[in-house]
Design a protein around this nucleic acid. Structure first.
Lengths: 276, 276
DNA sequence: ACCAATTTCCGTAGGGTATACGAGAATTGT
DNA sequence: ACAATTCTCGTATACCCTACGGAAATTGGT
């Protein structure tokens, strides 16, 4: 009755009730060394039974590939199965549910950020270290814009997610905040970086999937200004408009505001240290 | 052939191609005064034809009610129709598609924030004004947690959305940034506030819909620390853990980090003004 | 060589979603 | 009474996830 990875086939349903299995999947490539120094490996296809034709990594990779090229909706169970030339239900041998598959996809791409681990060389200044986190995260969102559509409230607790948190915390630890302050600063930074980078990526995703630039989208709504916009009700917007405060493309504004906000946030964090 | 609001029944499909109709719906209650001072109203049920049994406001309100109480998924076309005791397809007389309905729902709740308009009394300090924006937005997310699941990249260009932008810009205008700088600061603030408030609300939403607190969720994953977590790979997390940097509930940490990040961001913005 | 045990593979069925189409019902003015 | 108009909504199509259960493949034991 023990199937791949040691779980009964009959209990393959939703991971909500089975955190252990989800963890085992997330950490499938990162087992800790045991007491005798060997890394335990989870073997498939040993013993009796039909040989598996796929493996988890392959399923996850196919999901990411589809989501990257055709959007998150294309990474449906049916879509992934077709991509791998198997029946839809075959996937459930490798992954308990769609939800788990998504978790695995997310942790995979989180882990692909090139962030130096403990002991590895890194920029001297803490701000440059945070900058590196921001850059890598931004690139991740650009490569995988579907990430912006995934809730991160209960993130996949896997190696990729933990590595990112570890790196950011280590960058902030050295500047002399309290332990709790370090944690707060890290949360504030990830909130800003993840959402701003996500918005930027989502913006490009929508431009590509609709074949219409955001500027064209706005232009289509020109009626707004002529027919509905009431200048008396919106003096500040009017002032900024007249002073060319909205110059440049939507994309340029997004990139510029991303930098601006991150710099101001780091300024504010830095100031709390200098005061003491 | 002219149906409600003056659009042919046969062209009731997706709003992507019909920005004019979407705008007309969004601004249905906010027509500008015309030259002769009267506000044009869009009348339904005048002339020949069967009397309408619903109106747009009612459909939107039903959608919001369902999403508030049973989650965004419950605000399906079928769900809203059942709530209103009509057939599913009847809704398409009032709203061109699910997408438009969602836009209308979003702009409605954006507009329910109590933000003083131009000329109305408001706090003296610009930071208190921004604070007010943050408070109102946070409450909005708490009342309507489903908002966090809606993309804001191409927002509904309606009265609610514009009123919020106008208020925030007016608060920032007085502190002496350049017009472009004002716009950048506003974008950075909305990025942070919207996403942090959204995360907070989403967190509570998930607790309620799953019946499991986030702390319980983490507790279920205790295996992580025993079985998979490698201290050598995560020294910073370990340090903060040992120094009790993670004390308190998940919710407390979220609330505290929200305040912390907003304050630091405003500190940073304020500093750019003082320098010059 | 055969068979039981084991595991993977996957077709079918059921319940969910949005919405195109077109027929029928209701109301007005002529 | 009847044409014109507008609203109502059943049906059909095409997706989605996944529970169930039986067929196929492979092993080790005899």
């Amino acid at each position: 009755m023990q199937s791949a990875y040691g779980w009964p086939v009959t209990e393959r349903r939703s991971g909500e009730g089975q955190p252990e299995r989800t963890l085992a999947l997330l950490w499938r490539n990162h087992r800790k060394p045991t007491a005798d120094g060997t890394r335990p490996t989870v073997l498939r296809g040993r013993g009796a039974g039909r040989r598996p034709s796929l493996d988890v990594n392959g399923v996850v990779a196919a999901g990411i590939r589809l989501a990257d090229t055709q959007g998150l909706a294309a990474a449906s169970m049916g879509g992934v199965a077709k991509e791998l030339n198997v029946g839809t239900m075959t996937l459930y041998t490798y992954v308990p549910s769609k939800e788990e598959l998504l978790d695995l996809m997310v942790d995979q791409v989180l882990g692909e950020r090139e962030l130096p681990g403990p002991g590895a060389p890194r920029p001297d200044d803490w701000r440059d270290q945070v900058e590196m986190y921001s850059d890598q995260t931004r690139r991740m969102f650009q490569r995988h814009p579907w990430l912006s559509q995934v809730s991160t409230i209960r993130p996949p607790v896997g190696p990729g997610m933990l590595a990112g948190r570890e790196y950011l915390l280590s960058a902030l630890l050295e500047i002399g905040l309290t332990p709790r302050g370090t944690n707060l600063a890290a949360l504030a930074i990830t909130t800003y970086v993840d959402s701003a980078a996500g918005l930027e990526a989502e913006s490009e995703l929508i431009e590509q999937s609709t074949g219409q630039t955001n500027d064209a989208w706005w232009y289509e709504r020109n009626d707004l200004w002529e027919t509905y916009f009431d200048v008396d009700q919106h003096p500040a917007m009017t002032t900024i408009w007249n002073a060319n405060g909205y110059q440049g493309t939507t994309r340029e504004a997004a990139t510029e505001s991303y930098r601006y906000g991150l710099d101001r946030l780091l300024d504010g964090i830095q100031a709390t240290v200098l005061e003491s």
